[in-house]
Design a protein around this nucleic acid. Structure first.
Lengths: 163, 163
DNA sequence: CCTACCGATCGGTAGG
DNA sequence: CCTACCGATCGGTAGG
């Protein structure tokens, strides 16, 4: 809290005239991070298109959100365990619903014959999200590869693999 | 340190008759975690076989190490940033060398024509390791899918994708 | 928004 | 291996 205060040019204790506590700040950052991903999933689900098209939009949107909001994304993905029980349950629920939108999309593509490699939609969704979420660990703005190209490479990788 | 002592049936302060400090413990856990992965890479590189065969052995070995040593693996992957500069550099070097063994293997397969989807071995290695390392977050012994089957699914996913 | 604190916790030490 | 601490740090509060 003292560090946070310093970035605002005041003492840590002075923050308490404006906020309830440290935990409240964490909750708000995590919730706003989570809702960005949830909004994307809702948008793509509503927009229609083939499984391939929707998967591409999910990947492009996920990469864009994560590249533009690295701190909030990392907090949403990594810090939920420090939340009190009730809020943690809510955040895990957001994550589950987001994962479910991938699972549904992959299951639909499996049934339509578009994604024959998907025999277990839950595990395929986990793999796709593993690649996407690992970005918080290695993406650097101004890095060698830009966000748009990363999204395109991820799409190619999850659809076709290395062969 | 008090928690650690309690698991051994003594006080936190009593640990200091046996160890140098908290940091030393962390360093040893991380180093032993890292050397398991490094040993795997050395073994596979020495064993020969086609790029496909070596990739399969890398994936099987990685999953096996991670499934059998979840805490040490998670510490190796996540806690390096808390190390003092010199040891942190050493640990990041271990990680770089391990990643390089994937990169080399993928580059070799790209050149041989086995992995035509690999146009940028560095980014492909990152994707493969993203799927493998995410296991520390979701693998549960006694879970629905066993370690051997997970390895097999990961191999299928990285080689063929969802199509 | 600051002054002046509080109680709890942490890694660690001296001395036995 | 314990007793009895130490200094530093943390989230937070009372009162102005």
């Amino acid at each position: 809290m003292r560090d946070l205060g310093q970035e605002l040019g005041l003492l840590g204790s002075s923050l308490y005239s404006h906020i309830e506590g440290k935990e409240q700040l964490l909750v708000e950052v995590i919730r706003s991070g989570g809702s960005m991903f949830q909004d994307l999933a809702d948008e793509v689900a509503a927009s229609g298109g083939s499984p391939f098209e929707r998967l591409r939009r999910m990947i492009e949107g996920h990469v864009a959100i994560l590249a533009a909001n690295r701190d909030a994304s990392a907090t949403f993905l990594n810090e939920a365990r420090f939340l009190p029980d009730d809020v943690r349950a809510e955040v895990l629920d957001m994550r589950d619903r987001y994962e479910a939108s991938f699972r549904l999309l992959l299951a639909e593509g499996a049934e339509s014959g578009d994604f024959p490699g998907v025999t277990d939609p839950a595990i395929s969704a986990t793999f796709v999200l593993s690649v996407l979420n690992a970005l918080v660990r290695w993406f650097r703005p101004n890095g060698r590869v830009g966000a748009d190209e990363i999204a395109s490479r991820i799409y190619d990788f999850v659809t076709e693999g290395i062969t």
